[in-house]
């Protein structure tokens, strides 16, 4: 059963992404694309000619997708949280390498920003894992889901996690990594056709990845977890529609001062 879910993870993420595009359109009083739009896009990309810069560049995107899928699978299987975070970091590094491996300046800028994003959110993710460990006594996702009370003991840590969700799903104010037309997609710029498709699908997996961290805060109660995910989903899109993009350096500064302080403060409170 769990294997079916793992196999379906990109499709699930695609539905979330499609739903999000509709939701954002409705927030702007537009009709918006159909909810299956991401899949139409994927099928169309399969039907286009593919331009390749060089083979390793194209393969790194494929590798990025599969490592990411593996880390999402690890969450579903209830493995060690730290292991999952580092797997995800590895996937991100593959993408950054891909960005640096071509000559396009925009690709390099994209990689730089991707690195800054990793620098910004990675400590918070690890602190979240530590916080969950302190309360539940285990790094295993399956164990974490067996106890509860995270939200009452780790409210500030949850707020810190909330702040890094927009970075991961590339939403304003922290969407510096892709930045719409400002840097033309950053690391994605040199991809086309089938290989762009892998990057497109890994975006779906990012959604699953970061929202499962939100879900973990629900603990044993599945309803609470689902409610949290839905609430955060709405909130992130609301903020996305209402804010402008900050500069990369500002992003790191905001995360390091506000989110980090919240997280450390909360952890100190739990420890003492």
């Amino acid at each position: 059963m769990i294997w079916v879910w793992i196999a379906l993870a990109p499709i699930l993420g695609g539905l979330v992404y499609g739903g999000e595009r509709v939701l954002r359109a409705r927030m702007q009083r537009r009709q918006g694309p159909p909810i299956l739009q991401p899949f139409y896009d994927m099928f169309k990309l399969l039907d286009k000619r593919t331009l390749i810069v060089h083979a390793p560049h194209a393969l790194l995107a494929v590798a990025h997708f599969f490592v990411l899928w593996f880390s999402v699978a690890a969450i579903f299987l209830g493995w060690n949280l730290l292991y999952i975070i580092f797997l995800h970091l590895f996937a991100q590094l593959l993408l950054i390498l891909a960005g640096y491996s071509v000559r396009s300046v925009y690709s390099h800028i994209g990689s730089n920003r991707e690195l800054l994003m990793v620098v910004a959110y990675e400590p918070i993710l690890i602190l979240v894992a530590v916080g969950l460990y302190l309360v539940s006594g285990s790094f295993e996702v399956s164990q974490i889901l067996k106890s509860g009370g995270y939200l009452t003991q780790l409210p500030l840590l949850f707020a810190a996690l909330l702040m890094i969700v927009p970075i991961k799903v590339k939403k304003s104010p922290f969407d510096v990594g892709e930045a719409h037309q400002e840097i033309v997609g950053g690391v994605e710029i040199e991809y086309s056709g089938v290989f762009y498709e892998f990057l497109y699908m890994s975006r779906f997996l990012e959604y699953i990845f970061i929202y499962s961290f939100i879900y973990l805060f629900g603990g044993e109660s599945h309803w609470l977890g689902a409610l949290l995910v839905a609430g955060v989903f709405l909130l992130v899109n609301l903020v996305d529609n209402a804010t402008a993009r900050v500069r990369p350096a500002q992003m790191v500064k905001i995360i390091y001062t506000v989110a980090m302080a919240l997280a450390v403060f909360n952890l100190a409170g739990v420890l003492l």
């Binding site: 595009r21 359109a25 702007q28 009083r29 537009r30 009709q31 918006g32 694309p33 159909p34 739009q37 139409y40 896009d41 169309k44 286009k48 331009l51 719409h180 037309q181 033309v184 997609g185 994605e188 710029i189 040199e190 991809y191 086309s192 762009y196």
Partner: peptide, 21 residues
């Protein structure tokens, strides 16, 4: 923009020739 909303046809303004139709 919202009034005419081309995105309802699935249009994305990519700004990147390699991914455009």
């Amino acid at each position: 923009a919202p009034k005419y909303d081309l995105e309802r046809f699935g249009v994305i303004n990519t700004g990147n020739p390699k991914q455009s139709d």
